[in-house]
Nucleic acid binder design. Structure first.
Length: 479
RNA sequence: CGGGGUGUAGCGCAGCUGGUAGCGCACCGCGUUUGGGACGCGGGGGUCGGCGGUUCGAAUCCGCCCACCCCGACCA
């Protein structure tokens, strides 16, 4: 058989990633360059991501709504930085119903403008604030180089847009949602992330401050896994979002926006996967357990099937997402490999020997071979499985965190910085000048990722120019 | 947009000193199999990226176009 084995990560990480995405049936290439089809298994993962995030959004007082896909071109042009940032990657509709449009419509690359326009109509008084709206949707950005999930012309995400009476409230919201993303990434995705502030060069077009969560992939490149922006009054002024305060004086509102996209699926793949395929965190996995029946004879088949159904029902009743692979056309060995490719956290095998002994064989996806294999009594299995899933979730986070921490370096000088960013991240003092940032990028292709705030570091000297520096920043090659 | 490469069955490829298309995998049928990627037999499937030229005859030679991939300048 051809293509049984994945290209190993240490041979060609990109190729490994592409093969996983295709062979785990997460996504496929669309007929249009740079566009992707999210297949049912990939979308099921996305739905679990959505649920985990949406719950957190609701818990922090947000509500969902839907804004249109098409935005008048003139809206984009109202915020100077915004249009400069996005104009190179806009898709524009110029014909509708066979007629040339009077004003071109852009397919939203993000929705600050049209939402700002609506907010200006809805917000009249301080009593209307804050407005805390999120939308789940898709956006289009005409990227040149694309990768499935990581960068495609169209992608799915959520974008939160909030308006507040005061600067402080808006800053707090920016931080709150960054914290929500970090909590989600760490506790649901088992993806360790670093929270911090983006440099001026890396920030969102139109924001005063952008913050992000940054994750390290297994090739040590950084992936921006979510962003939260403090937009100050930039969009409020561009779209006239004004309210009367308690003193009856007219004020501009303060707005924020924050987003997390299907790119996070790429983060999960590249954080956890191994040379057998995906490894999904139990809390997000579409199937947490796959049951594989094993039998030879007819009579074995009958008793195995009975046990499989019983175990399935018991696990399901305990709230565990379980799949039975009862395909007759492939062998158990094939199924083992198949579900390992798809990253199901736990495999349960039930065969004649288990019927005899009242057990099942259990194999952990995160621990290949004998190490992860055990035999458990059928009685009380749901509790044991639930415990195992918790343990898998925990050890996945621990492993990813250990990997990341062992690839973050504190270079002594610039020469060492240029070396360490080839196989890790550098955490160094930076004077925050664009020139120093640019020099690192030109010399090494590494960019500043983020500056963690409230760190324990005191003032120091810029790793590049030696001038005084207040903060440390992560330098890394990024996706 | 600059450099490099590839287009032949769903996927991966061979055929390229011109003679009307083949292999592996996948797929369909039947049978035997099933605790780590099963096997046998039978079968279906192709405007050879497109257009034009050379020729009795083009997947093959020539020209133009198109698409996609990889590497560089921008990005969730």
């Amino acid at each position: 058989m051809s293509e049984e084995k994945l290209t190993p990560r240490n041979v060609d990480f990109s190729e490994w990633y592409n093969q996983i995405v295709m062979r785990a049936e997460m996504a496929d290439y669309a007929p249009v360059r740079g566009c992707m089809i999210v297949r049912p298994y990939g979308w099921a993962l996305w739905e679990n991501i959505q649920q985990a995030l949406d719950r957190r959004f609701k818990d922090t007082g947000h509500v969902n709504a839907a804004f249109p896909l098409l935005i008048p071109m003139s809206f984009l042009e109202k915020e100077k930085e915004h249009v400069q940032g996005f104009s190179p990657e806009l898709a524009v509709v110029t014909i509708g119903g066979g007629e040339k449009l009077e004003e071109p419509l852009v397919i939203r690359p993000t929705s600050e403008t049209i939402i700002g326009y609506m907010y200006s109509k809805w917000i009249k008084s301080y009593r209307d604030l804050p407005v805390l709206i999120n939308q789940w949707g898709n956006v289009v950005r005409w990227e040149l180089r694309t990768r499935l999930f990581l960068r495609t012309l169209e992608f799915y995400w959520q974008e939160g847009h909030t308006a507040h009476a005061t600067e402080q409230e808006a800053r707090e919201e920016t931080q709150r949602m960054l914290d929500v993303y970090a909590d989600f990434a760490i506790n649901e995705g088992a993806v360790p992330v670093i929270k911090g502030v983006k440099s001026q060069a890396e920030k969102f077009a139109g924001a005063n401050l952008s913050a992000s969560i940054e994750a390290m992939m297994q090739d040590t490149r950084a992936l921006q896994a979510g962003t939260s922006h403090f937009l100050a009054q930039n969009f409020a002024k561009a779209f006239n979002i004004q309210y009367l305060d308690v003193n009856n004086s007219l004020q501009y509102a303060w707005t924020t926006s924050w987003g997390l996209s299907t790119r996070f699926i790429g983060a999960i793949i590249m954080t956890h996967g191994d040379d057998q395929g995906l490894i999904l965190p139990p809390r997000l996995a579409p199937f947490q357990v796959v049951i594989i029946p094993i039998f030879k004879t007819e009579s074995e088949a009958a008793s195995v099937k009975e046990a499989v159904q019983r175990v399935q029902a018991a696990l399901k009743a305990a709230g565990i997402r379980v799949k039975v692979d009862d395909r007759s056309e492939v062998t158990p060995g094939f199924k083992f490999n198949d579900w390992e490719m798809r990253g199901v956290p736990l495999r349960v095998e039930i065969g004649p020997k288990d019927i005899e002994k009242g057990t099942v064989a259990v194999a952990r996806r995160d621990k290949p071979g004998k190490e992860g294999k055990s035999f458990l009594p059928q009685a009380g299995l749901p509790v044991a499985v639930a415990d195992l899933l918790v343990d898998i979730q925990k050890s996945m986070l621990e492993r990813a965190t250990a990997f990341r921490d062992s690839h973050i370096f504190d270079p002594k000088d610039y020469a060492e910085l240029t070396e360490v960013v080839q196989h890790g991240w550098a955490y160094s003092y930076w004077c925050e000048s664009p020139e120093c940032e640019k020099k690192v990028k030109e010399d090494t292709k590494a960019t500043t990722r983020c500056m963690p705030l409230g760190g324990d570091e005191g003032p120091g000297k810029c790793i590049v120019c030696g001038q005084d520096a207040q903060h440390k920043v992560y330098f890394a090659k990024a996706y």
